[in-house]
């Protein structure tokens, strides 16, 4: 049976890969490759966020009545913090400012990792618990 935790954690690993490729390209000064790699990373993150914010979190909030100050709210706030960094990283990649990009990407990496720990050790298990049998259907729908 499909399990939200496993599936979403797997997506985290794939986003990490894409993140690393973009950073490597920036560090090596290959800006055409860097911009493409950043777009690939950015796209993967946006899709991952969308799956959470538009499908999984609403289903969870409905099933448990936990919205407002609940855990999904905190996750959304952290997504916003990351989105601001994506915008700044995009500008830095376009302007070919590698020091600026690398400083931002390190900030993002720290934020992303502590966010992933929260999701993988608290949020996803709660999603699996609350949504149980609907998990497969929700993931498959995307």
């Amino acid at each position: 049976m499909a399990n939200i935790g496993d599936y979403m954690s797997q997506e985290h690993r794939q986003c990490d890969e894409a993140f690393a490729r973009a950073e490597d390209a920036v560090a090596s000064g290959d800006w055409a490759a860097a911009q493409a790699a950043f777009e690939a990373f950015h796209g993967a993150m946006q899709r991952h966020f969308a799956l959470e914010e538009e499908k999984l979190f609403p289903a969870f909030e409905e099933a448990t009545g936990m919205s407002g100050a609940g855990p999904t709210q905190t996750m959304r706030i952290e997504h916003e913090q990351m989105r601001r960094l994506f915008e700044e990283m995009k500008q830095a990649a376009l302007a070919r400012e590698s020091a600026q990009y690398l400083g931002l990407s390190e900030t993002l990496l720290l934020l992303m990792q502590q966010h992933n720990i929260k999701e993988e050790s608290m949020m996803y298990p709660m999603l699996d618990e609350a949504l149980g049998s609907r998990a497969g259907e929700l993931i498959a729908a995307c």
Partner: peptide
């Protein structure tokens, strides 16, 4: 530096210096 950034960005948004600054 990460905690400094985390606390600053809550106040300053994108104005907060990144962790290498």
């Amino acid at each position: 530096p990460f905690l400094a950034w985390l606390h600053l960005q809550a106040r300053l948004g994108a104005q907060a210096p990144n962790v290498r600054q």
